[in-house]
Write a protein that binds this DNA or RNA. Structure first.
Lengths: 126, 126
DNA sequence: CTGGATCCATGTTGATACTG
DNA sequence: CAGTATCAACATGGATCCAG
């Protein structure tokens, strides 16, 4: 996102402009939102997440987790036991973002009829 | 998103579960959010949007607009003049979704330092 | 158990050219 | 002005195998 003329949402700082797109991209990733949601009630281990967010693959879950960790939305704690145990937990930023996603869920709930109706009529029209 | 075991966010209805991912996918699309933002102050024509959301390409703008129209987030009005004139305008659903995006912008503003710091240290560590 | 590395099919994006 | 069509480059997701 470069050279956007009359900024409104993004007028805050030039940096947050790029950031918001990154964040949207991250939560747009196929499993990130589900992971955030699953972590809502407390830390989970890798395979717990894997089961909870099925049918996510190892690779995708790994990737999502690393992305979320990279952005400080979750923490990754390794317990050097055998077998290894790794827990993922939401940070404050993660929880805050999570509640925003709940806002979207609320929107979806509120406008579900509108959207499906629009899709149907669009389908018919085209 | 299929077979998600213990739903929390999405426990509303089975349909809104799929919908929310669609919505996230839509606003995750590279230009949709920008388009929504640009339409905030009133209807715009295709090329006005094109310029405002630069450097979007015709194809991508077209695609975004059709997706947003399909979901009833914007309306498309054709004025059968010559040269042709087409205006895009937010619907109520679109405006509602827009304000949610503003929430994300606020989040980005609030947690920008956290995220950038996290990215930096992640960079260093890896 | 927790992943990393690889291969492959598919989808998405951008550049370009063309049309009513 | 407002798009559509085509093609090539690239990113993404899934499956599978391997390793600490």
């Amino acid at each position: 996102m470069t050279n956007v003329a009359s900024e409104k949402v993004f007028e805050e700082t030039a940096e947050s402009c790029g950031l918001i797109r990154d964040v949207l991209a991250l939560i747009g990733e196929k499993w990130s939102v589900i992971v955030l949601d699953q972590l809502r009630d407390g830390p989970l281990r890798f395979n717990e997440l894997r089961r909870a967010a099925a049918p996510v693959t190892q690779r995708m879950l790994s990737g999502s987790l690393r992305g979320l960790e990279r952005d400080g939305l979750i923490t990754r704690t390794v317990y050097p036991t055998v077998p290894p145990k790794v827990e993922y937990e939401l940070t404050e930023a993660g929880r805050a973002l999570n509640s925003l996603v709940y806002g979207v869920a609320g929107w979806a709930d509120r406008y579900l009829p509108t959207v499906t109706a629009s899709r149907t009529s669009y389908q018919e029209t085209r």
